[in-house]
């Protein structure tokens, strides 16, 4: 299981509150005292966006923030580069407080440290693809020659070579979002903020884009904060998943933790239709005495991938090892199937 509380947190969010309305500071104490979102709206005409959210985002991992629409996930991600000002709380990036940054420090943060990919792409319609990808570099003040050289490199990496001189409106949605991704990667920022980046795309293209992202991440090791309302996407991409509801954090952990130990009915409801065999790994089921001889499977093997070997194994039972190769127990076919069902 991933340890997310350690010192390797790249971004730390502490007790963050966001209230929308005329006098958010006035109603903040009421919210802290436990006033609910509906009461706040009815009695004070303020909207509760984020409610006491704390989250440590590990370096070089993909942190998914999930929730239905209105859960505050897009509001949360905009706090990290301060596109939205919080009502109360703390945001630290590499130990630096984002909220006390001056305008120019904030500008540098956005230019060099954190780039963003948007649900609606946010491309400049009057500029060609290559100029769009180079946008962040031009804003940084890089020379034209340097920017366009790097832009070409990233256009190639997302598979859009040959489209440099097209305009965004000439490209399909999936291609436009590749441009958005290339633009964000071109600035070499360590942090990538992705706000429902693939939600506007149809399922097949979305799957392709997820593959592109995972492939790039294997090599680039960015700190990625990925917002989504799609659980399959969250489980596929997230090293760590945080689930929001009504602006409050309901549960956080890796995919397996959330599937095996859902915090409440809301999350149980969320995960009821997913393919558990693609989330749960052998390690979490291993128990008892390992059979002598036969193959040893790694604890990180997905249940789905282990099934065929379990069927063929003597007694339909196989030994399971941990990261270091030490045998930690065994799994039999019946248990595996049971775990996939409920």
């Amino acid at each position: 299981m991933t340890d997310t509380t350690g010192a390797d947190a790249k971004v730390r969010i502490r007790n963050l509150y966001k209230i929308f309305g005329r006098a958010p500071q006035k109603v903040l104490p009421l919210v802290k005292a436990g006033l609910s979102k509906t009461d706040l709206l009815d009695q004070h005409n303020h909207v509760l966006g984020i409610q006491d959210v704390s989250l440590d985002i590990p370096e070089k991992r993909i942190q998914v923030v999930m929730g239905l629409s209105g859960s505050g996930k897009s509001t949360l991600i905009r706090h990290i580069n301060r596109l939205i000002e919080p009502t109360a709380g703390e945001i630290l990036i590499d130990g630096e407080d984002v909220l006390t940054m001056s305008a120019s420090q904030l500008q540098d943060l956005r230019r060099f440290k954190a780039s963003m990919v948007f649900q609606k792409f946010g491309l400049l319609p009057h500029r060609r693809i290559i100029e769009n990808v180079a946008y962040g570099l031009v804003v940084q003040g890089k020379s034209d020659a340097d920017s366009s050289k790097r832009a070409r490199h990233w256009i190639d990496r997302v598979g859009l070579s040959g489209y440099e001189d097209h305009y965004p409106a000439q490209l399909s949605g999936g291609m436009q979002q590749r441009v958005g991704l290339a633009r964000a990667l071109a600035t070499d920022a360590e942090i990538l903020l992705m706000d429902e980046a693939f939600s506007a795309l149809d399922p097949l293209i979305r799957y392709d884009m997820q593959s592109i992202l995972l492939e790039l991440q294997n090599e680039l090791h960015k700190t990625i904060i990925f917002i989504t309302h799609d659980l399959d996407e969250a489980l596929r991409l997230g090293d760590n998943i945080a689930i929001l509801r009504d602006g409050a954090m309901v549960q956080q952990g890796d995919a397996q933790e959330i599937v095996l130990q859902p915090a409440d009915d809301y999350i149980r409801d969320f995960i009821k239709d997913i393919n558990r065999g693609r989330v749960i790994r052998l390690g979490s089921l291993a128990s008892g005495q390992a059979p002598e001889g036969g193959a040893v499977l790694s604890g990180t093997t997905l249940l789905e991938d282990a099934l065929s070997q379990l069927v063929d194994a003597p007694g339909q039972r196989l030994a399971v090892s941990d990261k270091t190769g030490k045998v930690i127990g065994a799994v039999n076919l019946k248990d595996a199937l049971q775990a996939m069902r409920s």
Partner: peptide
């Protein structure tokens, strides 16, 4: 949305 993107890139 386009303005927000410009903002986000500093």
């Amino acid at each position: 949305d386009i303005l927000e993107a410009a903002d986000a890139f500093g």
